[in-house]
Design a protein around this nucleic acid. Structure first.
Lengths: 317, 317
DNA sequence: GAAATTATTTGTCCTAGACAAAAACTTTAC
DNA sequence: GTAAAGTTTTTGTCTAGGACAAATAATTTC
């Protein structure tokens, strides 16, 4: 068995995916996959010899797209009935609507060809160039943030593959980290601890926030992504921070995120502030008590100023 | 309700954790948590009004420790019966055994105080200093790699908190990325695509590999962590890479990792090599056919040399 | 002592029902 | 017409205990 590798035991037929792997690849929980099957009739996996579900690639693909559309606020009940083509079309339409808003033109048009180019250097050069031209803060707000949104949408429309998104993400991180490393470290209040909660793995949001905060002179300590609530509390106390900053991309469920923030607020000393930022909170109706929501990166300077004013009052009054 | 924040609806008692969050915080699947409860009598969560499990913090803590010990090869059946104190002790003993091996002294003794210091700058300065002193390759192999292991062990022993590990991880990444950015880009074969599979989120392994490969002149394209198999295949074809490099920390189950690699090997063109590296494969009994296992970073130069020799033969013969 | 055989351990999957939180829709009040 | 309050639908997560195969450990055989 150890030498005759020519005919490996083929336990599962080629390219069919078991439910566990579908969960990992789509981000949809096993329970959710099963309940959709029961309710909507999709996905409709085949069964292997043990009666276990095996998903053909087309269904996994459609699940991936549905997941992405749901992150944009759509509901699964209707999405599952549509075909893949219809899904792309529908999203295209809703995107055009949103495009109607007056606003700065997306830098996507310029960047998309660079991302799709088979040569990674061009993208990085353009990013570095824009960084130099605009300065860190404007670079983040005017280029990186809209680009993130645009790249996400392009993926949903089928204009970009996930690996191209990964590639983009990696390059942006490189540029942002380098910029942060060369930024002068000013030690001014507030001391901030930056991280994301478990489940939120996107680092770019964190880096963008760190960039905006560093520019404004806040002292940032980043733990990277996915710190459990318990450890956020420990770290915040140990390093005596004034504020814990959390980043949320729209890839996480609003429900879970809210619950996690509420939980953290309960555990963390009341004297330590919590600022929750990221695209996720744009659609929030009821803010979490005791937590400052930062819907957009532009709002950071104002929130910082407000904190500083309140804090200086508290000290001198 | 929106103004009177004083008495928030307290749906769950303070500090008790629902099964979903325990899954996210410990990495143990819900099914696993339930089956342990049935079989071993641990964990033994309380129940809320709906009969749903709620876990007190001590149990979550113990689960976290058990999970970590299992990554070191121990089995849950016996671990669950021991108390937290016994667990630490037992691990301490097994660690001392391993220490018995002759080898370079771990740089941990020097770094541990810096990690525990409340001032992040010292750690970064020491890392940068060692990088300068040793050069990128030796820095990675002699400092970063053993430090990773040491930091992980220190956590299990209770010498370090998770947030301190995060902090360390973040600093190392910064230093490695900066070193990579300033390394000259030589375009020599093989072209490599670097990433991790879904579920493996540790980026440091990837960065260490990238550093060692870049030093040896391989052309590296990193997708960052967690690229689904389907997209690895697409990216490898689009960018015409010769080899796909995958990094595995020991935080993932060997079983799952093996299955995922086998799956990728099935999907990816045979002409494209797969190199799987990382601490995970140290205990591997049967290698995956058609996949090169790289147990340690020191082995990278040899594997590269071998590939180049074989490849040049294939071209000129 | 190595290889093959048997036993145990362990994680994941199964079914089908239940329920609460969120969202969408409807009604009522101003 | 808009805002608040009430109702319905949608949706994700949880429950139970049983089943089974892959991985690991223990035993036997050569």
């Amino acid at each position: 068995m150890s030498k005759t590798d020519i005919a490996p035991k083929r336990t599962k037929p080629l390219l069919l995916t078991a439910i566990g792997r579908v969960e990992r690849e789509t981000g949809l929980a096993k329970d959710t996959l099963r309940v959709w099957e029961r309710r909507y009739g999709f996905p409709k996996p085949l069964r292997d010899g043990n009666g276990e579900r095996v998903y053909p690639p087309e269904q996994v693909e459609k699940l991936r797209v549905i997941r992405r559309l749901m992150d944009g606020g759509m509901r699964p009940g209707k999405l599952v009935q549509a075909s893949l083509a219809e899904l792309s079309e529908r999203f295209g339409a809703s995107r055009l609507e949103r495009r109607g808003r007056p606003g700065a033109p997306s830098p996507l048009a310029q960047y998309l060809p660079l991302i799709k180019a088979r040569e990674a250097g061009g993208l990085q050069r353009q990013l570095a160039h824009d960084l130099m031209r605009l300065g860190l803060q404007r670079f983040v707000i005017e280029v990186v943030a809209p680009l993130n949104v645009g790249v996400g949408e392009a993926w949903t429309l089928g204009d970009l593959e996930i690996y191209e998104e990964h590639l983009y993400s990696e390059q942006v991180q490189h540029v942002l980290r380098q910029a942060l490393a060369s930024a002068p470290r000013m030690t001014r209040d507030p001391r901030m601890l930056l991280t994301t909660l478990p489940g939120e793995q996107h680092q770019i949001g964190l880096l963008m926030a760190q960039a905006c905060l560093a520019v404004e002179g806040a002292e940032c300590l980043s733990l990277g992504p996915q710190t459990p609530a318990r450890d956020i509390v420990l770290a915040a106390r140990a390093h005596r921070v004034d504020v814990v900053g959390l980043s949320f991309s729209s890839a996480v469920r609003l429900r879970e995120a809210r619950a996690a923030v509420v939980d953290l607020r309960k555990r963390l000393d009341r004297s330590i502030g919590i600022w929750a930022g990221g695209g996720l909170w744009a659609g929030m109706k009821e803010p979490v008590p005791g937590v400052t929501m930062i819907a957009s990166l532009d709002a950071i300077p104002a929130v910082l100023a407000q904190w500083r004013e309140q804090h200086s009052k508290a000290v001198y009054a």
